[in-house]
Design a protein around this nucleic acid. Structure first.
Length: 280
DNA sequence: GTTTAACCCTGCACGC
DNA sequence: TGCGTGCAGGGTTAAA
């Protein structure tokens, strides 16, 4: 799950759980549930810090979701690759790989489901969030007003790295993963292996604009849902942006702009898709 | 400073 | 058909 999907879930949560009070929290008995709350030593300690608390707001920092509680603590969630929140009721059976169920006083619940358990959730005091390294190093968000093109230009020049891994680096810019970095580079007309410090100002501008446009479009289409156990929103509904993808997952298929077959290369264990004609 | 490899886990594709 | 093996997949971090 990348920035657009996390943002869609954040907006859903804002409507669905802000103002609700947590009745109780069930960390399921199987061993993998402990992997999800791996920063807590015991189930009970995690559950007790949430029980009785009201959720006052929902923020996003990169791919992290932060649910602030009325006692100042924060429930931090990262969905990893296959994690998801699902709204439910007591009557509905829990889906396989449900690890945490949050019950609300007002009725209904919120399930955290994650087959591959790369995701995690933990409770932290607000003033201790700065001490969480993964959270603290999250770079500027491409959607923020403070993400300006001159600043982005300077950051690109300061590094000397290939564009694809640089865009995916959460310490450089937050929220882009394998899918959207490929889509951004296609929209900018730049190859994955171009060096960040060797771009013309026109190319920098194209990259900057592509980044904001692709992310905003993807949110508008409510994210990308690929494969069987892929991302869905809070209500189990898939996104639509997979139909808009220009290069990701389209190896050998005709480029939508020039009909040249899309090429794919494996970069340190991950596939990168690009059009050899449109991107240079 | 950047780049690569390993790790976490499950489900699926493939070969015997 | 059934079983075992290998690997994809996203993100982070430690090591090169």
């Amino acid at each position: 799950m990348e920035l657009p999907e996390v943002e869609v879930v954040r907006r859903d949560l804002e409507k669905e759980v802000v103002g609700k009070r947590i009745k109780e929290v069930d960390v399921r008995a199987h061993r993998n549930a402990m992997r999800i709350i791996r920063r807590h030593a015991r189930r009970k300690e995690f559950a007790d810090r949430l029980a009785g608390r009201k959720i006052t707001k929902v923020d996003r920092r990169g791919k992290y979701v932060l649910l602030t509680l009325d006692d100042g603590d924060v429930l931090v969630v990262h969905f990893g690759m296959s994690g998801q929140f699902l709204r439910g009721t007591k009557r509905q059976a829990l889906p396989p790989h449900t690890h945490v169920v949050i019950d609300f006083v007002q009725g209904g619940d919120l399930r955290y489901v994650d087959p591959r358990t790369f995701g995690e959730m933990f409770v932290s005091a607000a003033d201790e969030l700065g001490g969480i390294r993964e959270l603290d190093h999250v770079a500027i968000d491409p959607l923020e007003d403070t993400f300006t093109w001159p600043e982005f230009s300077g950051e690109l020049a300061r590094h000397a790295a290939k564009l694809k891994p640089l865009l995916m680096d959460q310490k450089f810019v937050s929220g882009l993963g394998n899918i959207y970095s490929d889509e951004v580079l296609f929209a900018a007309g730049l190859r994955w292996d171009r060096m960040s410090d060797a771009l013309s100002s026109q190319e920098v501008r194209r990259l900057y604009r592509a980044m904001r446009e692709v992310v905003q479009d993807a949110i508008r289409f409510r994210g990308t849902t690929l494969g069987d156990e892929a991302y869905v929103d809070l209500f189990g509904k898939p996104g639509e942006f997979q139909n808009e993808l220009k290069v990701y997952g389209r190896k050998g298929m005709a480029c939508r702009r020039c009909r040249t077959p899309i090429d794919a290369v494996k970069i340190s264990g991950r596939y990168t898709y690009y059009c050899p004609q449109c991107q240079s």
